[in-house]
Simulated scan of single mutants.
Amino acid sequence: MKYITKNKKNNKQPRTAGEKKIKTMDPALLQVRPAMQESAGFEATLAFSDMPVHQLLKQNIQNKGYRYPTEIQERAIPALLKGADIIGIAATGTGKTGAFLIPFIEQLLHNKNRTGLVVVPTRELAQQVAEEFKALTTGMKFRAACFIGGTNVNADIARAGAKNHLIIATPGRLLDLVNRKALHLNAIEVLILDEFDRMLDMGFINDVTTIASLTRARRQTLLFSATINASQQTLIRQLVQDPLTINVSSGKSASSTVEQNVLEVAPNENKMEVLFNLLSGDSFEKVMLFAETKRTVDNINKQLARRGVRSDVIHGNKSQHYRTKAIQQFKTGHTRVLIATDVASRGLDVQNVTHVINYQLPQTMEAYIHRIGRTGRAGKKGIAYTFIN
């Protein structure tokens, strides 16, 4: 971990009332975070073309630009094809979505009546899983429905009545459709809980247990996440029977592909000025910036806009249409800085994010790991800065 101390003598940036009440992780925890280390890395023992999956699926994988599986994929896919229950722990950006979609699609190719359910904590992650399924099933005539909050519920009711091979949903909207009797889960055979630790942390524990109890035909259960929490073991044991646990990462540390830096802001410094000077560097081409409150996110965006920085925001007060458009603008390069609360710390897969900046410390080490995991993805190197007052 690199520590960088600034010595500029600017006016101190006042905190908002909301910021004073924020509980954050102990900054001392960052002192034991390792700086980027060169490692031997994982070398796949076989290519996707050598895997025992349908030729059309292989072609779609190749069209996505994938030649070799990641470690979580190489270890999980064969076991999932055999019907095993799995707990998969792997860092963000290591291909967890492909690890559960590829074997499920292969199962569908052998049994078109197979049905699956993917439950995720955020709308953005749900949309991402749906997009990946669509790409991997090109030419197969399989249908998936994505149900998330912030969209038209009547349209969802209509989609729920169709024949869907895979349902992807956030817990709230999923149970809303179930309660309206528009959707029935009794035929679901494969249950996938992606970022399951985050769902439980967000207060979805009762929703998760309800959803699991409704999947009465369930034959296979998959739990995937980048972090693991010992306090959730009791529920995990209720969800999966004799699971195969695959630990690609410890679930307690950040990816070694991310160089981590702490930026100390002195009492006499203007924090916003320090941020602007940092963003002025030529290498800051595509940046995700995190803050704890919606108010702070909006304030940072306004101040950066005044300085001519192309930025936008996503947080819980923004409509789903706005959030989707903001992410698309960021992906295509129309926006250089995307400022967000932790709504974007998981499941947002944007290629070539050069930097992650924690303008405010997150509340937990798990949140920190997921935030900086937006860069350094798919084996590429990334850089993270964390401001400490």
Rank of each mutant, 00 (worst) to 15 (best):
A99Y: 03
L223F: 11
Q329Y: 02
R173A: 02
T364M: 07
V32I: 12
G203N: 01
V208S: 05
L275E: 07
I205V: 13
K325L: 13
Y368G: 06
L244G: 06
A162D: 11
V153T: 10
K331E: 11
V53F: 06
M199Q: 13
N270H: 02
I339S: 06
D342I: 06
V350R: 10
D201C: 05
Q328W: 04
V309C: 08
Q303H: 15
L304V: 08
A212W: 05
E124G: 09
V248E: 12
T97P: 10
N352V: 00
A340K: 11
L108C: 09
E71Q: 15
V265F: 03
I246S: 10
Q62T: 13
H334K: 14
R159P: 01
I86W: 01
G347T: 10
Q329R: 14
Q62C: 01
V208D: 05
P171R: 07
S345N: 09
N261R: 13
T45C: 06
A35L: 04
G95K: 11
L263G: 00
I105K: 06
C146S: 12
H54C: 09
N352H: 15
T5W: 07
A378G: 05
M51F: 15
R219H: 12
L101I: 12
S249T: 15
Q363V: 05
K134L: 09
G98W: 03
P69H: 04
P103N: 03
N60I: 09
N277T: 13
R323Q: 00
D312R: 08
T24Q: 11
A305L: 07
L275D: 07
A155D: 03
D242Y: 01
N113E: 15
Q260Y: 12
K21M: 10
I72Y: 02
N152F: 02
E292C: 11
L56C: 01
L214N: 04
F100G: 10
I228V: 14
Q329T: 03
A91K: 14
E195R: 06
R15I: 12
V119Y: 12
T151D: 08
T137R: 10
A40W: 04
S49F: 02
Q107G: 14
G18T: 00
L57F: 05
V208R: 04
I167N: 01
Q232P: 00
L223Q: 09
I102V: 15
Y66V: 05
L56Q: 14
F142Q: 10
V153Q: 05
I383G: 00
T45R: 14
I22H: 04
K271L: 00
E43S: 14
D342S: 14
S256P: 10
E19W: 02
V119L: 13
R323E: 06
T137H: 10
Q73M: 10
M140L: 11
R15L: 15
G333K: 11
F142G: 01
L29T: 04
K318C: 13
H321T: 12
A340T: 14
T16H: 03
Q55Y: 03
D207G: 01
Y322S: 08
Q328K: 12
I87C: 04
H321D: 09
G251S: 10
